[in-house]
């Protein structure tokens, strides 16, 4: 009973913080709209890059352009959603220096939950929308033969893929507690992972397959579900149901993330002063 009351109180607190963030950003409507346009443009340019690459190689990793759109759309949309929700978490050094983190420690909510709700950036909505458009076009053009299983797979994959990327951001935040210049190191993983995921994994070099297939399993966010949707065989000698393991990959990603976070907070040295 007391637990439920506490939970409701906490939810009220998160909502108050979140809605204040949203309102603060809407206050600068003009620059906000401009930022949205900018973000949408970036998505277009990145997709154009894949397009050009495709023109050179004809069929990247054995996929048609429409199928590549599917991979790119899935990866882009789920990454951007995670970025929208927790992307600011990997700017840990900024929070440490500004003393924001010390302030989170002084409040009766989990530090990680406060960090996640503290600084949501609505401009990232544009990239979610861009990814969604490309995904929908890819789904239509690539001629997916729909079955109830495939609908279910897509419904499971999207939230699980968002969770995988969110885990990646949080792991990065945890590591940044004790790595000086950690942001540079972790960005290589976060943005490298995102870039890799928007390409068919069959063109990845072996080392990338190991890192982004197993340790930070971003292959599960785009490539593997796309193969399943298109009834294509899975490379690396994996069984056809591999795509259904996306939720497992998400759980793994969060275990890594929370482990890194815990390690990080134990190492926290404060902002000095």
């Amino acid at each position: 009973m007391a637990e439920a009351g506490t939970l409701r109180g906490d939810l009220t607190a998160y909502r108050a913080v979140l809605s204040s963030r949203v309102r603060a950003q809407r206050a600068y409507a003009a620059s906000f709209r401009l930022d949205l346009v900018g973000a949408a443009l970036i998505t277009v340019v990145e997709f154009a890059e894949v397009w050009v690459l495709f023109g050179q190689v004809d069929a990247i990793g054995g996929l048609t352009l429409a199928s590549v759109m599917l991979v790119f759309g899935l990866a882009e949309m789920t990454f951007s959603t995670a970025d929208l929700l927790v992307g600011h978490c990997d700017r840990m050094p900024t929070y440490v220096r500004a003393g924001t983190l010390d302030v989170f420690y002084l409040r009766p909510q989990p530090v990680l939950a406060q960090l996640m709700t503290s600084d949501i950036d609505l401009r990232r909505v544009a990239r979610v929308a861009g990814g969604m458009v490309i995904l929908v076009v890819g789904l239509v053009v690539s001629g997916v033969r729909w079955t109830p299983e495939k609908v279910a797979l897509l419904a499971v994959t999207i939230p699980a893929a968002v969770a995988i990327y969110a885990g990646l951001f949080i792991a990065a935040a945890g590591v940044q507690f004790f790595l000086i210049n950690g942001a540079e190191t972790t960005n290589a993983f976060v943005y490298g992972g995102r870039y890799a995921a928007s390409q068919p994994a069959s063109v990845w070099p072996r080392s990338l397959v190991l890192v982004f297939g197993l340790i930070f399993p971003v292959a599960f966010t785009g490539y593997l579900p796309a193969l399943a949707l298109l009834d294509l065989p899975v490379p690396f000698g994996l069984p056809g149901w591999t795509a259904w393991l996306t939720p497992v990959a998400a759980v793994w990603s969060w275990l890594v993330a929370l482990g890194c976070w815990r390690l990080g907070t134990r190492h926290y040295q404060g902002a000095g002063g």
Binding site: G9, D10, A13, R15, S20, G99, V103, L106, P108, G273
Partner: peptide, 28 residues
């Protein structure tokens, strides 16, 4: 209750009253 003279626990871009409202929610 802790105050660090060189840190702020208020929201920079919000009115004071609103910061208090959020903190009241945070403390239930």
């Amino acid at each position: 209750g802790v105050v660090f003279g060189q840190r702020s626990q208020l929201w920079w871009d919000l009115p004071v009253a609103e910061s208090f409202r959020i903190l009241a929610a945070i403390h239930h």
